[in-house]
C-alpha cells in the first residue's frame, strides 16, 4: 500500500508536487487561523463580559459557552444573502472576498518559529505592508456597491482613516528595519536574541506605541471604529450585508486583528524567543512563546474596546496626521543620529 502510494506520488510532475505541498502547508496555517478567529470572538465576549461584570456566553456547549462561535457560524451560514435593489451585484459579492484575501495572504510570510514559515522571502516586511494596504478595497467597494448612503459614508471614513494611519505604520516599520538592518521578519526576530531587554520595544518605544495604535485604527477596531459607528451610520460599510457575506467581513476583521498582534510580537516583542535566555524558560517550545505573546497583545485589543469611547472623527485625523507621523519622523532621526554620531549607538542595534 505504502509503496504504491510512493510510486503514484512520483508519477506526479515536479511543479505539481510543489503545488500540492504548498496547498497542504496553506491548509495547516489557515484552518487553525479560522478556528482562532472563531474563538477570539468567544474570548472577546468573555473578557468584555468580565470587565463589565457580566457572565458572557454561558449556554451553548456547557457552562463556558464554548459552543457559541460554532453556533454563530452555523446561523450565519444558513441566513439569506440579500442584495439591495440597484446595487452592483458583482462588486457587492466580491467586496467581502477582497477584504479577506489580503488578511489571509499576509500570513504566508509570518514566521511562527525559527523554521515554521510558509515563505521565508527577503522583503517580507514590505510584502505585509503592501497586502495590509489592499484591505481597504473591500471596505470601499462594499460601501459603494451597496447603493446606500450610510454604507457609503462608512466607506469614505474608513478609506481616509486607513490611508492616514498607514503612513504612520509605514514609518514605524522604517524604524524597525533601520535597527534590524533587514526586511526579513525571521531575521528581525533573530536580531532580538538575548532576553526581553534586547527586544525592540525598548529602543523603539515611541514607534512601538504608534505601530500598535495605528494597527488598532487600521483594523477599524474600537475606539477607531467610525467606519461602523452604530450610533450614527447604523453599521457603516457592511450595513447592507447579511448572512455569509457579513460573516466574511467579520472573519477578515478578526484575522487582521490577529495579524497585527502577531506582527507586533514579531517586530517589537521578540517573536518566538523566550523573555529570559536561561534554563527553565528555554525548555518551553518557541511556538508557545509566540502564541502566548500574540494572545497577550490581542487582550489589549479587547481591553481597548471595553474601556474607551469612540473617537470623534476630527480627533482621529488629528491623531494620525499631526501626532503620530511627526513622532515617527522624530524617532527615525533620533535612531539615525544616535547610531552614527553618538556613543549610544549600540542601544539602537
Amino acid at each position: 500500500m505504502g509503496e504504491t502510494l510512493v510510486s503514484l506520488w512520483n508519477l506526479v510532475p515536479g511543479w505539481m508536487q510543489i503545488g500540492i505541498y504548498s496547498l497542504i502547508k496553506i491548509t495547516i496555517i489557515v484552518a487553525p487561523l479560522m478556528l482562532a478567529v472563531a474563538y477570539l470572538t468567544w474570548l472577546e465576549r468573555k473578557v468584555i463580559g468580565a470587565i463589565q461584570i457580566r457572565i458572557g456566553p454561558n449556554r451553548v456547549g456547557g457552562g463556558w459557552g464554548l459552543g457559541q462561535p460554532i453556533a454563530d457560524a452555523l446561523k450565519l451560514l444558513f441566513k439569506e444573502i440579500i442584495i439591495p435593489s440597484n446595487a452592483n451585484r458583482f462588486l457587492f459579492i466580491i467586496a467581502p472576498v477582497l477584504s479577506i484575501t489580503p488578511a489571509l495572504a499576509a500570513w504566508a510570510v509570518v514566521p511562527f518559529t525559527d523554521s515554521l514559515v510558509l515563505a521565508n522571502i527577503d522583503a517580507s516586511l514590505l510584502y505585509i505592508l503592501a497586502l495590509t494596504s489592499m484591505g481597504v478595497y473591500g471596505v470601499i467597494i462594499a460601501g459603494w456597491a451597496s447603493n446606500s448612503k450610510y454604507a457609503f459614508i462608512g466607506a469614505m471614513r474608513s478609506a481616509a482613516q486607513i490611508v492616514a494611519y498607514e503612513i504612520a505604520m509605514g514609518f514605524a516599520l522604517v524604524g524597525v528595519l533601520m535597527v534590524a538592518g533587514s526586511l526579513n521578519l525571521r531575521e528581525i526576530v533573530l536580531h532580538q536574541q538575548g532576553g526581553f531587554w534586547q527586544w525592540y520595544f525598548l529602543p523603539l518605544l515611541p514607534l512601538f506605541v504608534v505601530y500598535f495604535v495605528s494597527g488598532v485604527a487600521e483594523t477599524n477596531r474600537a475606539p477607531f471604529d467610525v467606519a461602523e459607528g452604530e450610533s450614527e451610520i447604523v453599521a457603516g460599510f457592511h450595513v447592507e450585508y447579511s448572512g455569509m457575506t457579513f460573516a466574511i467581513f467579520f472573519l477578515a476583521e478578526y484575522a487582521n486583528m490577529i495579524l497585527i498582534a502577531a506582527l507586533t510580537v514579531l517586530m517589537f516583542l521578540g517573536g518566538w524567543l523566550s523573555p529570559f535566555p536561561f534554563a527553565p524558560f528555554t525548555w518551553i517550545p518557541p511556538l508557545f512563546w509566540f502564541l502566548g505573546k500574540t494572545v497577550f497583545v490581542l487582550l489589549f485589543f479587547l481591553w481597548f474596546r471595553a474601556t474607551f469611547p469612540r473617537y470623534r472623527y476630527d480627533q482621529i485625523m488629528r491623531l494620525g496626521w499631526k501626532v503620530f507621523i511627526p513622532v515617527t519622523l522624530v524617532w527615525i532621526t533620533v535612531i539615525g543620529v544616535a547610531r552614527f554620531f553618538t556613543p549610544f549607538g549600540s542601544f539602537f542595534t
Binding site: L129, A130, S133, I140, W144
Partner: peptide, 19 residues
C-alpha cells in the same frame, strides 16, 4: 512597492474622488 504605492495609496484616493 508598486502594489504598496499605486494600489495601496494612489488608487484609493483616486477611487475616493471618482466615487
Amino acid at each position: 512597492v508598486l502594489v504598496l504605492v499605486y494600489v495601496g495609496a494612489v488608487m484609493v484616493l483616486f477611487l475616493f474622488v471618482v466615487m
